[in-house]
Design a protein around this nucleic acid. Structure first.
Lengths: 85, 85, 85, 85
DNA sequence: GTGGTCTAGACCACA
DNA sequence: GTGGTCTAGACCACA
């Protein structure tokens, strides 16, 4: 019943807005190379379900990543991990 | 061969386009009083999943109901069963 | 900065939905006489490719023109510029 | 300028209806294992362009394959190479 | 070879 | 968390 805590997004462990935490988490997936440049992120509904958050939270997190230049959104196509400069 | 016939939307039993059949089916729910005036219909995504059709098919069926004055759509709120004249 | 401005449909210069802009653009071709009454419009696929939009967007634009009475669609034949009243 | 003729669908070398020849050709791709079971065939427009034939020819050829049980068509999804019995 | 239906699924504005 | 727009592309009926 003990054992390693699952390596997992856990908003309860932190302070701050949930969308910022989610943005951090996703930024981590990118900077760690788990999501490689050019890869399409899961859709907003998938992410909302996967992380148990509202759609709006996912959208705000995505916006942060976009403003940081970490991802690029192509309308109706998806949001893609940006290629580093 | 006995037993209750499934009370179910069955596009295979009819001719015509699926969105028309779905529209008929939903119109039936309204005219039978199963869906009462003012009630919000299930969301498009729910209906698509429930009836096993694509979103667009649900949308076309809804459009027919709207054109017949059976429902009224409020953007960002949902589609509601209209009150009879 | 000099030179002829490209005579071209440019959705980026305007606001509103693409299918409305495309409808305006095509209505312009009709009202300017570039497309004369009776003429068949290019097929939906051609228009989609020419303007770089999806088929559905072309279809919605065509529907608008049809509802305004500017064109008439004959199934399996094409969409034709209407004769003015 | 001589040399091997390209291994290629060539309707001119045969007699019979073009859609039958195309059906034979495609059946060959299946029986030779070039198209494996479960694989989706190219869309009808791709095939028409690739083989330089009319859409209707592709559709008639596909119908033959379907009647022979070599392929299965799922509406709006595509035509798939059938799994052998 | 056209317009139509249909699938699947993306992001967006708005509440 | 809804309806809307939009992409991409499949097969189908009809002429």
């Amino acid at each position: 019943m003990s054992g390693p805590a699952p390596r997992k997004y856990n908003p309860d462990n932190k302070t701050g807005y949930e969308y910022e935490l989610l943005a951090e988490h996703l930024a981590g997936l990118i900077s760690s190379g788990e999501w490689i440049p050019g890869r399409r992120m899961p859709g907003e509904r998938s992410l909302a379900e996967e992380y148990g958050v509202a759609l709006d939270t996912v959208r705000k997190a995505t916006r942060i990543l976009r403003e940081r230049g970490l991802v690029q959104t192509l309308k109706s196509k998806g949001t893609f991990v940006a290629h580093p400069d």
